[in-house]
């Protein structure tokens, strides 16, 4: 097991990895029709680290993390999450695994017909069925204060800005105390200031909740701010892996285009 400290990045580094792998992906393959999106992807997410997956649009980044929680079934290779092969899990086993893996969707995916409070209570009532009403209220208050949006409690998602929706979505993801967080383009569509706020939140979550995170992005500022380690996804494979310095020195034209 790789227990070495991974590189820290940027002026305000996130906590470095401290343990063995929590996600192991080996030779992952996924095709749509005749198009091979993931040819042979292999990577590991270490306990406590923030791993950023960079790649151009259409390189299969979102497909990769959707395969991890079985929102899509992969065609070949294997994915092991917290020691369990996800393709071998049945309904109940998959449900248990999903309690430990939080997923922040690109669009936020807040339920339009529910208030912010109901959005936050929704996963909590289903994943932590033994909680009392006061414990649920306490948890809702905790996560909303963590993302700085306590005053939006009874608002509908349509009354919130894009950045607020992303933060509420993050609050909904962390409310069930997942061990692993998967971020799908967390800063896409946001202005630079709001993107920085989201990046800071990702780091705060890592520190406070001791989570391991896989962050899919093509926003290099977000990557610099949040990553302990990076991988580049290109032509359905991992083309480069390492710290930010390795990426900055790379002569690969695609990698260079990200760091211009």
């Amino acid at each position: 097991m790789n227990t070495e400290q991974t590189e820290t990045i940027g002026g305000a580094p996130a906590k470095a990895a401290s343990g063995g792998p929590v996600i192991v992906i080996s030779n992952l393959k996924k095709s749509f029709g005749g198009q091979e999106v993931l040819k042979s992807v292999s990577l590991q997410l270490l306990d406590g680290e923030n791993l950023v997956v960079l790649g151009k649009s259409g390189s299969g980044k979102s497909v990769l993390i959707k395969c991890i929680v079985r929102l899509m079934d992969h065609d070949g290779g294997s994915i092991t999450v917290l020691g369990k092969d996800v393709s071998a899990l049945n309904g109940a086993g998959l449900g248990e695994l999903r309690k430990k893996v939080g997923f922040l969707f690109q669009s936020g995916a807040l339920y339009d017909s529910m208030t912010v409070r109901q959005n936050l209570e929704f996963p909590l009532r289903r994943m932590r069925k033994n909680l009392t009403k006061s414990e649920i209220d306490e948890k809702v208050k905790e996560v909303l204060e963590h993302v700085g949006l306590w005053d939006t409690l009874d608002k509908m998602p349509s009354q919130l800005s894009g950045g607020m929706r992303k933060r509420i979505s993050l609050a909904r993801t962390i409310i069930v105390d997942p061990k692993i967080l998967l971020y799908d383009e967390p800063t896409t569509g946001l202005d630079p200031a709001t993107s920085d706020e989201i990046s800071s939140l990702i780091k705060d979550v890592q520190k406070k909740y001791k989570t391991s995170s896989l962050i899919i992005t093509h926003d290099i500022q977000c990557a610099r701010s949040t990553a302990n380690r990076l991988v580049m996804l290109q032509d359905g494979e991992v083309s480069l892996e390492g710290g930010i310095e390795k990426f900055e020195k790379s002569t690969d034209p695609v990698v260079k285009s990200f760091f211009k």
Binding site: V69, L71, K99, G102, Y111, F122
Partner: peptide, 20 residues
């Protein structure tokens, strides 16, 4: 329209990963 927009905005996927 409601379920279609939930599909497009990934709300159905969000429900699935919430063990629902």
């Amino acid at each position: 329209a409601e379920l279609g927009s939930m599909k497009v905005t990934e709300q159905i996927d969000a429900m699935e990963v919430s063990s629902t």
